[in-house]
Write a protein that binds this DNA or RNA. Structure first.
Length: 113
DNA sequence: ATGCTGACGTCGC
DNA sequence: CGCGACGCCAGCA
C-alpha cells in the first residue's frame, strides 16, 4: 500500500483507460475510505507537474460534472480533452457518464492475464 | 503553532 | 425530500 495517499490517488487515476472517466468518491472508496473523496480532490490539485503525468481530466465528481475544470489553465481545457477521447461533454457535464464511468474496483474483478 | 481553505461524498435530521 | 454537518489530507497565512 502506498503510504502516500496522494501517490495512491495518482496511481489509480493513471490506470483510468483512455476514453473513460472516474469519480473522486470511487477512487476514495477504492483506497479504503469512502469518505476521503475530498482528499482525492486535494491530491489532484497537487497533481500538477507530477510525473508520470496524471490524467486528472478523467476525474470528475459523482454527478459527472467537471468540478475541477477551473484548474486546467483554460476553462475548456478539461472538457476539450475529454471530447478528444470521445467523451461527450456539455455544460461542463459528462453525458452518458454512467456509460463511460470506470470504477477502479474493476481491477479487482479483472483477473490479470 | 493554529486555523482556514479547497477538484467531494456520505450520513443524519 | 431538502439542508446541514462531518470526515478526509495538504498547503498556506
Amino acid at each position: 500500500m502506498e503510504r502516500d495517499f496522494f501517490a495512491a490517488v495518482y496511481d489509480v487515476v493513471r490506470l483510468v483507460p483512455h476514453g473513460r472517466v472516474t469519480s473522486y468518491g470511487a477512487i476514495a472508496k477504492f483506497l479504503g475510505s469512502g469518505r476521503s473523496a475530498r482528499a482525492v480532490g486535494y491530491a489532484m490539485n497537487a497533481s500538477h507537474g507530477v510525473t508520470p503525468a496524471v490524467p486528472a481530466h478523467r476525474v470528475v465528481n459523482r454527478n459527472g460534472v467537471l468540478s475541477g475544470k477551473h484548474h486546467f489553465g483554460s476553462e475548456n481545457a478539461m472538457a476539450d480533452r475529454l471530447r478528444a477521447e470521445g467523451i461527450s461533454v456539455v455544460d461542463d457535464t459528462v453525458h452518458h457518464f454512467r456509460d463511460v464511468f470506470w470504477d477502479p474496483e474493476c481491477l479487482l474483478q479483472q483477473p490479470s492475464p
